[in-house]
Amino acid sequence: MNDPLNKYILHLADNALILAQRNGEWCGHGPILEQDIAITNISLDLLGQARNFYQYAASLQGNDATEDSLAYLRIENEYRNGLLVEQPNIDWAQTILRQYFFSTYQYLLYEKLQAADDAQLAAIAAKALKEVSYHLRWSREWVIRLGDGTAESHRRMIQAVDALWRYTGELFIPADYENQVGVDVSLIKDAWTEQVNVVMAEAGISLPEKTYMQTGGKQGIHTEHLGYILAELQYVQRAYPNSSW
């Protein structure tokens, strides 16, 4: 349960699951029908990735562990997702920007992970990379549209940057388990920064120069939002243990 590989897989899985849950909140509430479908598609893609990782982690753990027990029966401080993905939707701008920051990171991460020594992780990353490249393209287009759009959309994009920028630093600071397995995330920071700078310049949004970066999510210390997410996510399985559809 505590070996670095297991922690690392759960970290990858939790990132995907929590962002899937957040994006899924848009289901039926999207700004227009087509974008409602787009954001929930992305949500389902991420959920698929999370399942692959959880299944792999469960197979390594043995005992009675399943993908469901890992997703539904761990408590808040056992989740190792970054703080970025648990931030609330607020509005379309913030949802889009969160997706863009994360997809850019995830793309660079999976690109390296598909060459990992661990064949299973490499295979999951290679498969997911195709859909992540679409998430990236889609969210990048939207960041530019909103940043370079109307006065209102520009204002909301600036608000989104203010709200989310402080959670981006953590992505590139290796947690203890990342020092031993997987991709060295400190190596993708420059590429991430460069890409994000280009897109934000095109969107006409300036990024904060110096910000205190929040950390802790990857070690299980979360913002107050994760508890609420898990309450909704886990309610049925907690209230009716072992129930199934």
Binding site: I32, L33, E34, I37, A38, N41, Y134, R137, E141, R145
Partner: peptide, 20 residues
């Protein structure tokens, strides 16, 4: 058919709506 602001968005929306 679908709504989109421009051709690029129309293609992306079509990908999400009609080729899932």
């Amino acid at each position: 058919s679908l709504h989109a602001a421009d051709a690029a968005m129309a293609i992306e929306n079509a990908r999400d709506v009609y080729t899932r």
